[in-house]
Amino acid sequence: MAEKMRLTIGLVTKPGTTMQYHTGGWRTYRAVINQEKCIGCRRCADSCPDGAPFECAHDGKKKKFCVNYDYCKGCGICAYECPVDAIDMAVEEK
């Protein structure tokens, strides 16, 4: 744990600050998107509780999705939901 924060009156907290905590460290498996197979449908991004998959680029005509490994907890929802089987759950190497 980093240095302790100075408290605020009423413990009022700044917005969106969990971003500094990387839940990627919890992971046993990592979601890996096969860019060849990906059709850019964004089902993975819409079904991830952790906002890990994101639109990373336009590759010519189609959208490309990447995974932000700072937050991917490795649950595998995206791999299960992917309509074209473009996501593999690979064992995390530490």
Binding site: K4, L7, I9, G10, L11, V12, K14
Partner: peptide
């Protein structure tokens, strides 16, 4: 008010304080 709920300047009120912060919160 010192602070308030306002979409223009969002804050979180009523967060969870672990043992490392609770004593100080009560002291305040």
């Amino acid at each position: 008010p010192l602070f308030k709920l306002d979409p223009k300047d969002p804050v979180t009120m009523g967060a969870l304080a672990q043992p490392e912060y609770y004593t100080e919160a009560r002291y305040m």
